[in-house]
Design a protein around this nucleic acid. Sequence first.
DNA 1: CCTACCGATCGGTAGG
DNA 2: CCTACCGATCGGTAGG
Lengths: 207, 207
Amino acid sequence: MVAERTTPRRPGRPRNVEPSPEFVARMSEIVETAARVFQAKGYDAGSLDDVAAALDLRKASLYYYVHSKAELLYRVFDRAITLALARLSDALLIEDPRRRLEALIRDQTVNVAREPAFFTVFFDQRPRLASTYESDIRAKERQYLRVFREAVESAVDQGSLSPVDPRYGAQAILGMTSWVYKWFDPGRDDPERFASTCIELLLGPTG
Amino acid sequence: MVAERTTPRRPGRPRNVEPSPEFVARMSEIVETAARVFQAKGYDAGSLDDVAAALDLRKASLYYYVHSKAELLYRVFDRAITLALARLSDALLIEDPRRRLEALIRDQTVNVAREPAFFTVFFDQRPRLASTYESDIRAKERQYLRVFREAVESAVDQGSLSPVDPRYGAQAILGMTSWVYKWFDPGRDDPERFASTCIELLLGPTG
DNA sequence: CCTACCGATCGGTAGG
DNA sequence: CCTACCGATCGGTAGG
């Protein structure tokens, strides 16, 4: 997050800098509701009145939690990318390049399919994010891309993936898997099955 | 288009139903400008004042060409999908399944990379399209998907593509290639080279 | 967390 | 294709 404390603690008892658990929980609800509103109506047409109404609040009350609508959007973005990055950590422990890439493909597909509101906003409302927050999000996104690029590189070296430029390979795989949010129908489609399709197309039958 | 005439011509000289070439050309400029404005600011935040200003017009003058902002968005959508469909026609003449799929992958990549404004609006502003126009666009989009699905099917039958569900395979390929509009940098990237990467990943080295 | 309110923006129209 | 304008919406604030 942008406002994270990086300086060491001052001595003595800190004076209510820690938000209460109730505050954190309520903030979480607000961010989730905002994600759904912005998914359905877009950032500009989705008003703070809409978000407040979905929470049974008045618009002015939201300003107790965020300073601006722009900050609320940032919080949706931060949650999406932080969640996605965290969910990659298990895959990164896998040593075999082919299996690691398989796990990353599954992770990305399932992430996007499981949180359609957050990822729809993340992918489609990107130009609406205020420039103040852009660099923070971009840094985390670059981490994400790097993970995929290095996984592609290893799989190419291993000979399990066709020899391609790692950046192009990573973008191809990210596109294939992220695109899910555009067409996925939860009643009809299965993320695991689609992930298997991608793996089969790229890496051939699983041994 | 939604308002296309399908009934036969009445007898006698038609009374100025044909728009003049000047009108058509000006309309074209307006639609292109709208695509750029909606790409940069989004549909809701991109005002008719913005579109008019970019054309050195006043907002009210746009209403000589379109009945509403919603119609202007529809015209951007229609142009994007009509253009994309038209550009597939050459590929459809190719008989060999592997080569046909290769050509479709190239077409889609180059289409998206060449018209970033139209395709960014098409992909990201879809929920903003008024329901009146939705069915028209969806029908054309389904045609588009069918072309890719059938090409996947043929390539699978031929044995040049891994045996996968044709719908999932088509969505995977469409995602891989369409995603280009999210990351492509015209100064750095080459659409043809990226298309070759996709082909290599999916179909192996070109023989 | 609320009521009441302001200032600005915007799609659309009147009338030419 | 223009000037002038209306009605509605919306982010944000005052003050409690």
